[in-house]
Amino acid sequence: MIDNIEKALIAKGIDLPKPAAPVASYVPAVEANGLLHISGQVSMHDGELITGRLGDNMSLEEGQQAAKA
C-alpha cells in the first residue's frame, strides 16, 4: 500500500517535506470512528513556521498552500 501511495504522489508531482522533530511527548495521529485526528503537526516553508488566520491576515490561497505544506 505504501508503494501505491508513493507512486501516486510522484505521478502528481507532489514532494512531501520531512516531518518536524517532535518537541513534546504526544501521539501524532489517532483514528476514531473512521476519522483521523492529527496532532502536533505544523506548516513549514523554507524552514520557517507558517502562521496566520484565514480572512484575517492570510488569504484563502495562502491557507491552501499552508495546508499543503
Rank of each mutant, 00 (worst) to 15 (best):
G52H: 04
K12C: 03
G52C: 10
R53D: 06
E6I: 08
L36E: 14
A29C: 03
V27A: 10
K12V: 07
I14P: 01
A11L: 03
Y26R: 10
V30L: 08
D46W: 13
A32T: 04
V42K: 08
E61L: 05
S59G: 12
G40F: 06
G13F: 10
V30G: 01
T51R: 10
H45N: 02
L35S: 10
H45V: 07
S39I: 09
G52I: 07
K7C: 03
E48V: 12
G63V: 09
E62S: 09
E31M: 09
V23I: 11
G55P: 01
P22I: 00
N4S: 08
A29E: 02
D46E: 09
E6P: 01
R53A: 15
A8G: 08
A20W: 06
P28M: 03
K68N: 04
G34R: 00
M58A: 04
T51W: 02
A20R: 04
D46C: 15
E6Q: 02
A21W: 00
H45G: 06
N57T: 12
P22N: 00
E61W: 11
G13V: 06
D56W: 08
D56I: 07
L60M: 07
A24R: 05
L49G: 02
A69T: 11
L36W: 08
A21K: 00
M44C: 14
V42E: 06
A29M: 12
N4R: 09
K12Y: 14
E61P: 01
G47Y: 14
I50R: 10
K7A: 08
D3Y: 02
L35V: 06
T51A: 05
P28Q: 04
L35Q: 09
V27P: 10
Q64R: 11
G63Y: 01
V42P: 01
T51P: 00
A11G: 06
K7D: 04
M58E: 05
P22F: 00
A8S: 13
E31I: 03
G34I: 00
A32V: 06
S59Y: 05
V27E: 10
S39Y: 10
P17E: 01
N33E: 08
L9W: 02
I38G: 12
S43H: 09
A24N: 11
A8P: 03
A20K: 13
E61I: 09
E31D: 11
G40V: 15
M44A: 05
D46S: 09
Q41Y: 11
R53Q: 14
G47W: 10
Y26P: 10
A21R: 00
A32G: 12
A24K: 08
G47D: 15
E48W: 15
I10L: 09
G63Q: 00
V30W: 05
A69L: 03
V30R: 13
L36M: 05
